[in-house]
Write a protein that binds this DNA or RNA. Structure first.
Lengths: 166, 166
DNA sequence: TATTGTTATACTCTATAACTATA
DNA sequence: TATAGTTATAGAGTATAACAATA
């Protein structure tokens, strides 16, 4: 496998930490790593993640916060346990997150009608408004982060990624 | 967007933590999230990452350990600073990692011929042997983790991912 | 003055064990 | 006996500031 000189882009020069590349450190040959789906998925996600986090900061949301709000917008009354299963996070790590969204008045906790152990989660009207705005910002962030792909390529990419985890 | 009943796979039932899905928690509608490249890239990477980590455990390597060894196999004499730039990690977080690989006798640190500040990193023969074996295991892990894709689809996926971050 | 490698440290994310109340 | 939610806590990953040696 040969290296493509164009792929090094020395002039671009700013990583996600805002650092600029120093003179003496040229990029290394990562020929093997870049043949791996896992390596490329991680790098691509890292890139998108930076754009995503920057845009969400305007709404005071982290990535998981947004995922929770978006799920509640489409699944009113969902429980913490369901959020955990869908997003693949562990229950103890959701507690403070839910409590914070509650304190901000974005969600409500109501007793579950059939199960006294469970708590149904609902967006408040403020939460609905914020979620609508954030979803639009996320869609724009997606387009910006994947600007080098046309819509057909973007759909192909998503379809292939889903076949890896679904 | 409708949910595909086949995609839930109730019998498969074990997430990356080894937990099995309890009865009461059906998956939620994540229609919006699954239209996002970022969300799908993260989920796909998480899936592959689990397979990857499991296989690397047999060699006593974490993902970043493998990346470092593979880079040194193809770039003998690379410096810590170059590894950091290529893998997008910060220098302080590489120090213990390099020291551990050195203690295990997998790499050597030699003074840089032209720059007294820098240290050139080289695989030992034991390091070369382990890296060769690990690279083969990684390739097999890749094939297993992306078994639902044929080689043409895998190449397409990698190409599209690279256009997001290169 | 700038860069390499390093120490110390803090902050976030993720994980496990154990408890309560309900089922 | 098992599940939902919670508490406390431990571990891993990631971040910044500051230092010595060298350029």
């Amino acid at each position: 496998m040969t290296r493509d000189p164009k792929s090094t882009k020395p002039a671009k020069g700013a990583d996600k930490h805002g650092h600029t590349a120093p003179r003496g450190s040229e990029r290394l040959d990562n020929g093997f790593l870049e043949t791996l789906v896992g390596y490329n998925a991680r790098r691509a996600w890292s890139q998108i993640s930076t754009v995503f986090s920057d845009r969400m900061a305007a709404y005071g949301l982290k990535q998981v916060d947004f995922s929770v709000l978006s799920l509640l917008a489409h699944n009113p009354g969902a429980t913490s346990r369901q959020l955990c299963a869908t997003l693949d996070i562990l229950p103890p790590n959701l507690v403070n997150l839910i409590a914070a969204l509650d304190s901000r008045g974005l969600i409500e906790r109501r007793p579950h009608p059939r199960d006294g152990r469970a708590v149904g989660l609902y967006l408040t009207s403020a939460g609905e408004k914020l979620t609508r705005e954030a979803e639009q910002a996320v869609q724009q962030a997606e387009l910006d982060a994947s600007a080098k792909l046309n819509s057909r390529e973007r759909e192909t990419l998503i379809r292939l990624l889903q076949r890896l985890y679904l």
